[in-house]
Amino acid sequence: MAIPARRRVADVLAFAFASFATLFGLFWLAWILWTTFVQGAAALTPTLFTQMTPPPGASGGLLNAFYGSAVMILLGLLIGAPLGVAAGTYLAEHGRYSRVAAIVSFVNDILLSAPSIVIGLFVYEIVVRTQGHFSGFAGAIALAIILLPIVVRTTEEALRLVPDQMREAGFSLGLPRWRVTSRIIYKAALSAILTGILLGAARIAGETAPLLFTALNNQFWSANLNAALANVPVVIFQYAMSPYDEWHTLAWAGAFVLTIFVLGLNLLVRLLARRGMRK
């Protein structure tokens, strides 16, 4: 029995739409990356990595911003990653089936999608206001808060994938719980936990909103974590919104480096994770 023409047409239309939708999504990705690469490659100069952010009208680089960003990302990782792994461990291991773990797991997903600008305001109220000035330290705390729920989620999922037989094997040897977790479970889930931390690092590298009122910006070289600290995202924001052409060029160069770093880290981590899974 042939399918009536109307149903066949609806079928073809729906599938044409689905294909078009996918092209639509890929189209924007291609356009955005193309723009960033073309504009960014044209703006790349050797001085980008050797000079400081310039005043309007002068030439310069982004060295202080790269340094500030690197320091804050590392410090954010140092604070956020251990806490995230510990909390994820509680959710999947020690607090499993407890009511607290269920609530935290739920709340964590909300924190994961919470507006990052509000996190910035929060750190401003808690840290900047008490200290009385902006600081790179406050910026690192804001980044750590953004990172925390990402690491909690991926750690919990990674640990849940470890089969219970491994835990039982550990217990049957008479090992205390913490040894089972640290010697057996962590080992089995290590690559998945690291994947989560690295993806989190890629995420906080591009975060701008939480740094606006915490690290602020600094036009000059500063290694002082207790003072306003230059960083790539905020420099891009300020320079792109300015009326000066030299600043626009530098903003594109910064955007180029940032995009390469973030997308490169993302792709690398996914590739490694996939290879690890095949093993």
Binding site: L29, I32, P233, L263
Partner: peptide, 15 residues
């Protein structure tokens, strides 16, 4: 498609 989520929002803004 997932890379669309990885692109930093400031890049979306500049573009």
């Amino acid at each position: 498609i997932e890379l669309l989520a990885a692109v930093p929002s400031i890049i979306y803004g500049m573009w």
